[in-house]
Computed example of a mutant assay.
Amino acid sequence: MDNSGYVAISRQAGLMRQFNALANNIANASTGGYRREDVVFAEHVKALDAGDPSISIATASRRIIDFTPGDIQSTGNPFDVAIEGDGFFLVEGADGPRLTRAGAFSLNGEGELVTADGRRVLDEGGAPIVIPPQADTFSIAADGTIAADGQPVGRLGVAIADPASLIREGDNVFRAEQGYEPAPDARVRQFAREGSNVSAVTEIARLIEVQRAYEAGQRFLEGEDERIRRVVREIGLSR
């Protein structure tokens, strides 16, 4: 394969990664607190042998996450909570707290506040939040303070972190590679959920663009393959 083939294949690989990212965004367009992601294309210039020009190859090995807030909608469920502005809820992780914007909470059998996938929600000190089973009323103030029958039982842990250090994991949570800090000025809203920040229409349109670009690249590769085969045949006939 000559240099043009390697250049085209590198572009095709990047487009496939972008296609998968867009498809994942569309699949999560209705997932509460989901943050869309995309692929960053960069140019990798490789020096060749002395006297030969360099070769430029596309790379798309890094994904970026869009942390634009999603729309907040009222639900009437007292265990639904949304963050207004920056910040993430602290939730349980296998090897330390994780961060999420998905605030569709509920109670498990032990009276602990948990996420939709069963992770325990943590307070500002990193401990699980337990609601007394005999409580008749449950409320969450704007500063995250939780009260049962009018008595404080904890405060939601809300943290901020450098977006560039956040690594997406499963279950719509993030791991903060460089740590996180408490968000003392964060405000939350009870009886509400934050939706995904994905615009399905926009993502579908971009998906079609990427698919067309990939198909054009495939046609180029097929043309290059035929050109090389033709050259080989002509060389063979000339001997």
Rank of each mutant, 00 (worst) to 15 (best):
M1R: 10
M1V: 09
S4F: 08
Y6A: 02
A8R: 07
L15K: 06
M16R: 14
F19M: 15
A27V: 03
N28E: 02
A29Q: 15
S30F: 09
S30C: 06
G33I: 06
Y34S: 02
R35V: 00
R36C: 05
D38H: 11
V39F: 06
V40Y: 08
V40D: 12
D49K: 00
G51A: 00
P53R: 04
S56P: 06
I57D: 00
T59R: 14
R62T: 15
R63K: 10
P69Q: 14
I72A: 11
Q73D: 12
T75A: 06
E84A: 12
G85T: 11
G85M: 07
F88Q: 01
A94V: 14
G96C: 08
R98T: 08
T100L: 01
A102G: 06
A102K: 06
G103A: 07
A104H: 11
S106K: 12
S106P: 02
S106Q: 11
L107S: 01
L107T: 01
G109E: 13
D123Q: 13
E124F: 07
V130G: 10
I131S: 07
P132K: 04
Q134F: 10
Q134H: 05
Q134W: 05
T137C: 03
F138A: 00
S139E: 04
A141R: 05
A141M: 05
T145C: 09
A148P: 01
G150E: 05
P152M: 11
L156A: 08
L156P: 07
G157V: 03
G157T: 05
G157N: 08
V158R: 02
A159M: 06
A161D: 00
D162I: 05
S165C: 04
L166R: 04
E169F: 13
A176E: 01
Y180Q: 03
Y180K: 02
E181T: 13
P182W: 04
P184T: 03
P184E: 02
R187Y: 00
V188L: 03
Q190Y: 05
E194N: 13
E194K: 09
G195F: 14
S199D: 15
E203L: 10
E203H: 08
E203Q: 14
I204C: 12
R206F: 09
L207P: 05
E209L: 14
A213V: 11
Y214Q: 08
Y214C: 08
Q218P: 12
R219C: 09
F220C: 10
L221C: 06
G223C: 08
E224K: 11
D225S: 13
D225P: 04
E226N: 15
I228C: 07
R229I: 09
R230W: 11
V231P: 10
R233M: 13
R233H: 14
I235L: 15
G236D: 14
S238K: 07
S238E: 10
